[in-house]
């Protein structure tokens, strides 16, 4: 009798087991929250010590009534206007080369980078300071000269432009979309090898998590080899290509969903050593 009841219990699908665990967790959390609310608050910090002497009478401190930059965003080479109004100060300065200023005024500035201008004022009663930002937006870069196009390194070119070939579950045949990806890759590789004859490429084979690790090692090997064979058929030199199977050891996506599994069933090109 106990055997059969164990049978029923253990045949419950995992999902209900999980939700049961969730239901168990909820009261635990509630208990925890109640536990927190009941906590005795810590004793308040001691009061600060009484001042031993009263401060001497002071002159009124200087005040910056306003300090603005208009416009606050400029392109390189354009100007922005700083305006300010100060009372009660004897010594007034703006940094970044503007220098000493009067209690009210304005000044045009031509920042070469985003700049924070700080107005610092001093008087017998103390000091004050305030900052404004002038942000620089970069102008569109000049078009590159036609003769000297900047060239990406072969590794960057491969990583940015190579496309993965994706596979069906348990299969290592190249699909139609995989043929398109690998045809693109073959052209890319021929271009790379032309400009960088010593470069080499690793064709990685990957699998989704559902098969056994042992079988996936062999399946990933087939996927990598199938992709390599296709590239060689397209004229890519075989001696520049090496295959490696990662099975399911290096997934690029770790969720349990078909979308994610599909992303992991792939042949991927990476730079060799």
């Amino acid at each position: 009798m106990s055997d059969s009841s164990r049978l029923h219990a253990s045949l419950q699908p995992t999902r209900s087991g999980l939700s049961r665990a969730g239901m168990l967790l909820l009261p635990v959390l509630v208990l925890f929250a109640v536990g927190c609310a009941k906590k005795v608050p810590p004793p308040p910090p001691p009061p600060p010590p009484q001042p031993t002497a009263t401060a001497p009478p002071q002159a009124a401190p200087p005040v910056i009534n306003s300090f603005t930059a208009e416009p606050s965003t400029v392109e390189a080479g354009q100007s922005s206007t700083l305006r300010w109004s100060i009372t009660g100060a004897t010594d007034m300065n703006i940094d970044h080369g503007v220098g000493a200023v009067q209690s009210t005024g304005m000044r045009q500035v031509f920042p070469r980078a985003s700049t924070s201008y700080t107005l610092t004022v001093r008087g017998p009663g103390g000091m004050d300071s305030r900052s404004v930002n002038v942000n620089l937006t970069s102008a569109p870069p000049p078009p590159p000269p036609a003769s000297t196009t900047p060239r990406l390194s072969s590794a960057d070119l491969l990583q940015q432009q190579a496309q993965d070939a994706f596979f069906d579950l348990d299969m290592s045949e190249i699909r139609t979309d995989g043929r398109d990806a690998l045809t693109h890759d073959a052209a890319l590789l021929k271009q790379i090898f032309q400009q960088d004859p010593n470069f080499s490429v690793v064709v990685e084979g990957h699998c989704d998590e559902r098969g056994s690790a042992e079988y996936n090692l062999a399946l990933g090997d087939r996927r990598a080899t199938a992709a390599k064979d296709f590239l060689v058929q397209q004229g890519v030199p075989a001696d520049r290509l090496k295959t490696i199977s990662y099975g399911k050891e290096r997934p690029q996506c770790t969720e349990a969903s078909e979308d994610c599994w599909q992303k992991n069933r792939r042949a991927h090109l990476s730079p060799g050593q």
Partner: peptide, 10 residues
Amino acid sequence: GKQSANLGQP
């Protein structure tokens, strides 16, 4: 994890 080309064949 990112630079898998560091490893040789199994």
